[in-house]
Amino acid sequence: MHISWPVRVLVYFAVAIAAFAVLFPLLWMLLSAFKSQADIINPDAPIFPTHWHWSNIRDAWTAAPFGRFFINTAIFSAATTVGQVITGMIAGYAFAMFTFPGRRILFYGVLSGLMIPFPVVIVPVVELLADFGWIDSYQGLIVPNLASALGCFLYRQFFLSAPVDLAESARLDGASEWRIFWSIYRPLAQPMTAALTTIVFLQNWNNFLFPLVVTSKESLMLISQGLTIFQGQLLGTQYNLLMAGSLIAVVPVLIVAMFAQRRVVAGLMIGATR
């Protein structure tokens, strides 16, 4: 397709505006994170820091137990992601590859059950966890998040179009059902597993509402909830430290997402690619 140069200029200009709209809040965070408190509260101070206060990062880091928050977030995200991918994969595989009584009704049951939005059931879930004695515990954070509708649905779709003859010949050779799944079919789904794992991991890493209602102990907080505590401690005045804390939370995810960019995009359009 030929595109004339005035149109090209317009296109690049429009894309630049859109990119700026996405980036300027992040740039504002970056600039504010390194300003002095005096520059922050002075409306006449320049937008760029007059002096870069790198020590803001250290001050923010010591103002809240960020190390603890990161460890908690890593434990939570790793456990729930592995859980969601594996439970989704084996269930989707079973729904696609096996014929068994109640298959259809169980599949649609799981699907509609898992599509109940979490906010709708938030109150009774917290009560259930309280009954188990799981409030303020890792199992309370993790166990309710071990299943996902998306994974189950996507793997079922995937395995429905996988060849069945592989399983049949393996069965004739006497392979167990688990071995057929694990050695033959699981590797086939590898590209989708990679994309799904990436996106589910990021979602879990950023989960806010669930940990907020299940934990109140600082030693169990994830990074998002930890930041809100941090905000309260600063009494809403030290925006430079608040931005430094936000920067601490944003940068690691940003680096990982940039390195795994293809997987992230594949994950975001999972179910939308053909």
Binding site: V22, W28, N206, Q231, S246, L254, A257, V264
Partner: peptide, 16 residues
Amino acid sequence: LFIIPLVVPAVATAFI
């Protein structure tokens, strides 16, 4: 660029 806001923690960007 357009996926950055999706993947970084929303609490942090809401502070911005």
